[in-house]
Amino acid sequence: MKLLSLARRWETVLAAVLAIVLGTAAWLDPAFMALSTQLELSTHAVELLIVALPMTFVILSGGIDLSVGSSLALAAVIFGLSYEAGAPVWAASVLGVLTGSLCGIVNGAFIAGARVHPLIVTLATLAAYRGLAEGISLGRPISGFPDRFLAIGEGSVGGVPYSLLIAVAAVLAFALTSTRTVFGRRVYAIGSNEIAARYAGVPIARMKLWLYGIAGTVAGLAGIIHVARRNTAKADVLPQVELDVITAVVLGGTSIFGGRGSVVGTVLGVLVIHEVREFVGWRWQRDELILVVVGSILIVSVLAHNLVARRAR
């Protein structure tokens, strides 16, 4: 019986999908599955993964944040410009991450304070933050960062990239927060039934401010990591990454209406998308195929999820 309920869990289904993808890849092209290759490719998914973690919290709470990609770009541009203006690289990094925090807090203030629908607020800031990044930098790429900073993106210890270590630490932090803390329980409570949560004494407005603030902060961090990986800060980095992030979270089994889902699911969702994308790119070098496959996985998986959920009832 326990086995049966385990089989009905979405995470199990995803793990099976991931195993099939990896198995197929190993069968078609063993070189792709070599540990060194996998570790090298893993850096491509770092930004997607770490931004997907706070997005999981936001969606679990019944909200959405379309502006993460734009916050990320603004953080990258602020980082680049302040480094160019003579700030030490650590100070510029802190400034970049704080820019992300500020972006998130502004979102949170509109959503929690003015009680405007998150889709509208973040649709506005999706345009506004990206626009600010374009306006401030005039679309100009900034590069020439010191090697010691670029090591964050390119360096590794014992073959494991630093950025992957950061991502793993972030995964652990978010996974533990979601299951072992009051904060985590409150996120689920708000998403399941906001009015009930309010009557149960959950400080809704403060929680939302935190959730969007964290989303912005992590987006800022991802922006810095992205610059370290590419050695370029530019306003148009990672266009439409917010859609990839939301796709990964939803594929991970988090309900778009909130209240149901898990960080583990999101990690699996990111891994499925990452491995499919990298393998299709590796073997066929055709980006357009990746789009079709990832989009289909999203729709089909949620369709399948509905079927599984309905039968479980």
């Binding site: 796709t247 195929l289 789009l291 079709v292 999203l298 729709i299 509905n306």
Partner: peptide
Amino acid sequence: MLVVAGRVPSIIVTLGMMTVLRGVTEI
């Protein structure tokens, strides 16, 4: 039909379609 018969939220259906259709166009 995916929204109504499949009971998939429209944001997800159309987000997926957005990616799929762009890919098909490029192919």
